[in-house]
Design a protein around this nucleic acid. Structure first.
Lengths: 329, 329
DNA sequence: CTGAAAGCGCTAACAC
DNA sequence: GTGTTAGCGCTTTCAG
């Protein structure tokens, strides 16, 4: 099929290309009959406006870049879905970019994003990447962070206050006199885990105690599970907190292998909620994080910023809900 | 930061924009010293070529659309990762599009993709969507299907032969005299399940038998699990096959709740392999499907087609490997 | 209400 | 080697 341009349509309908442009953009100032004529021509020729050319002329691409850490789809999936759903509504396209562990690449990715002239960038990441952020900041476009609290002139953020969540959870355990509480490291989500530790430490402090049970998975262990299996031979806690479902499962399995009964001898809480938490036995207690909403709201804020609408709140905190299951008493 | 164009760079470096263009495109026919001068100007002004303008001029966007079913990230994650890694190498951008159950939207999505003038489309989907495919076919660009076997002038595909996998698996059970084999429906992956049934039926036929244990989850059940819990009160099979991990887990859990011992009283196999299969206890036997490679190869084939390279094989079959775990004897 | 023409930023002949 | 110029397809004043 030959490329059919606005020009062909104009010819076919015996109008100027300006008129065709008006029709496809729904401008009211076109007479009924010529509009119909143009539409027929469009139909007949199978004309589809070239978004690239429009982008050039309008200086905007109606597409926004999504930056997420590599291989994180299982817990990013809902966020992406939320994002895409509202992107669809506002007719925005999403370009997908992943950051791998190799820091090197990140510069290239940013460069690539800038060249692509997206209208905005949505970033979901563990680490705050301050440098990269400022690099992006230079280029006008709005940035929405999901998961991290932070804002500035053209940066907004949508997040869940994990620190508070952790503070509340840990506090409630401390109230019960349970002070042997541990957090499992999640290398892939360094920033998140920092928040967890902060919240826990705060709760401990309030009780005049010090939080110190951070279970670090040594580099040489391929998986948390292999390490934890050893770990629980000689350790046991009243409560173990993990960030992701797979880590929580590793805890559950490793504990089981060492005959530690859950929840009676040890309780387990997973922070991020996924469907897998309720699929394993015992089902894992977790925080219901509104992942879908995180994405949806982020995209919504983005569209507001793009339309120069006043954004009342640049730091939007979404609520969580602790969902007790079988892994806690 | 003001928009800086190729023109500004040309001015700054006292050359014509053509020369700047040559430099940024790495054409050799530029003298050393002027190239350096241009590069300095680029550096100084912080110039980044406008990919949109390039796209218009070159009639290609170096970006390709990825179309996947909504909410399928958990089992599509690896595919996307493979895709993106290769895309990065070849400097292609990926735009993400998801299809929801509502068929209505699909037309809009296709329309959108066409308008965006991507160089190609990669589709991962359960159903073959023949209509939509032909709609896309009209528009020149190459299409790569992942998961489905199919090809034509500008359509290639990368897939795993699940039918064969199923045939082999079921055959081996039939050889052992185990004929009570069931497959669990997966609504989200209709096409895949069809293949499973085909393979199983074939194996049965060869033995002069008929396969008929297709466990259909009634519409009214929110989840497979709630249905299966009832189902296994009155049913038991020698082998149950599920497509996705979550379905297999539902089987395992529902069986356990009805005191059916796995694998002794009933064996379970999951087709698609995810990390969760080995996280649940008993660990679920499954086929190791090279998801990452599916994505990577798909993208590689795409680049070949885009560069008019001869594509030796338009239907690329990747191999699977049965990985026995605790859910089978 | 419609048309003419300039311009969005860049590439690619074609001259010099 | 480097500059000139004509597009790429569309939007948008500005006239009429």
């Amino acid at each position: 099929m030959k490329r059919v341009t606005i020009y062909d349509v104009a010819n076919e309908a015996n109008v100027s290309l300006a008129t065709v442009s008006r029709v496809i953009n729904g401008l009211e100032i076109v007479r009924e009959d010529t509009r119909i004529r143009v539409n027929q021509a469009i139909e007949k020729l199978g004309y589809k406006p070239n978004a690239i050319a429009q982008g050039l002329a309008l200086q905007k691409t109606t597409s926004i870049a999504l930056l997420i850490p590599e291989a994180s789809f299982s817990y990013t999936g809902q966020i992406i879905n939320g994002l895409l759903d509202v992107a669809k509504i506002y007719k925005y396209n999403i370009t997908l970019h992943t950051t791998s562990e190799a820091i090197m690449q990140i510069g290239d990715i940013i460069e690539n994003i800038i060249k692509s002239r997206v209208d905005g960038v949505i970033i979901y990441n563990d680490k705050l990447m301050v440098d990269e952020l400022t690099a992006l900041t230079k280029y006008q476009f709005p940035i929405v962070l999901v998961g991290n609290q932070m804002s500035s002139a053209n940066i907004a953020s949508v997040y869940v206050n994990l620190q508070k969540a952790m503070y509340e959870l840990v506090s409630s355990y401390l109230e019960q006199g349970k002070t042997d509480i541990a957090i499992v490291q999640d290398r892939k989500n360094k920033y998140m885990v920092e928040q967890l530790i902060l919240g826990a430490s705060q709760a401990f402090e309030k009780k005049g105690l010090v939080f110190k049970n951070f279970i670090e998975i040594p580099r040489e262990y391929r998986s948390s599970y292999t390490y934890l299996k050893e770990y629980f031979k000689t350790h046991k806690h009243e409560l173990v907190i993990a960030h992701r479902d797979s880590q929580a499962m590793a805890v559950i399995n490793a504990a089981a292998e060492n005959d530690i009964k859950i929840p009676n001898e040890m309780e387990v809480v997973c922070v991020m909620d996924t469907k897998y938490n309720s699929m394993i036995r015992p089902q894992i207690s977790s925080f219901a994080i509104p992942s879908y909403d995180l994405g949806a709201v982020a995209m919504r804020v983005m569209t507001k910023m793009l339309n120069q609408n006043p954004v009342e709140e640049r730091e939007i905190e979404l609520s969580y809900l602790f969902t007790p299951r079988q892994s806690t008493k």
